[in-house]
Design a protein around this nucleic acid. Sequence first.
DNA 1: GTGGTCTAGACCACA
DNA 2: GTGGTCTAGACCACA
Lengths: 82, 82, 82, 82
Amino acid sequence: MADHLAGRIAHGELTANMPLPSERRLAEEYGVSLGTARHATRVLRVRGLVVTIRSKGTYIAPDAKAQAQEQLAGSNGASGHA
Amino acid sequence: MADHLAGRIAHGELTANMPLPSERRLAEEYGVSLGTARHATRVLRVRGLVVTIRSKGTYIAPDAKAQAQEQLAGSNGASGHA
Amino acid sequence: MADHLAGRIAHGELTANMPLPSERRLAEEYGVSLGTARHATRVLRVRGLVVTIRSKGTYIAPDAKAQAQEQLAGSNGASGHA
Amino acid sequence: MADHLAGRIAHGELTANMPLPSERRLAEEYGVSLGTARHATRVLRVRGLVVTIRSKGTYIAPDAKAQAQEQLAGSNGASGHA
DNA sequence: GTGGTCTAGACCACA
DNA sequence: GTGGTCTAGACCACA
């Protein structure tokens, strides 16, 4: 689920400073439990793709698109500066 | 809203040890915000009509019916020992 | 163990859509290891007698009773179309 | 809960290479849910006080005692080399 | 028999 | 009305 969201960020569907749907909404959209949706936003936060402000929401990081593209490329087997 | 719930307890619709609907559900049923629903359950808690167990739920207190009837009588204009 | 459970299904003790005890519980009830209990539910699943929903539980299949009776009859020495 | 376990490590009750009770057992001993016990072991893992080997268990790290004492001192308001 | 991941919720602090 | 933490379980891969 985190990878799917990362893909939407890399693709440009979700852009800088845009609020992510709330974890409750994400859980409904993806048909998963709240805990799983929370795990996904935590993963994105650790990857630096989103920023969470408690009681406000979770937002796409300013440089998320480039980072997401880099991370997805990196997981496709390539080593980056090979 | 707290008084309305107290009335349902006094009337016997909500009985001892029964779980109260969740705060989210109460907010929906009464068409109010979460904060308002929380305020109502807090009032009931202070009155001793319900007991809250964190992460589990809120339950009608064992002696809630009698207490609710007493409290509602008290608030009907009489001053207690008039 | 799978056969014993299949017997309980054929007999009607365990009926359609009823949840099976959890694998941990089954292991305790039958006094076997978790692995053995898992093997049993897997066998029942392959036979179509139960349906497993991950993180939710294992449930008796809607047509489990008839299937279990058929399967047990088949395993009582007869070869099927003899 | 993680802090309480860290205290037991700092105190020397739980020593290097000793296996921590399983998460299920910890949950029972502390009277919390499995998820909370898991959170506690994850915190200890991040702090470097324990090492987890999947399917085997969780073990006190070789240098856990010193690290635990340092960390607890650090959270008591002191800055370390003041 | 362990840790890993997941379901389907709950109440809570805070804005 | 958000994210945070929690309950009380479930099945799963792996050793």
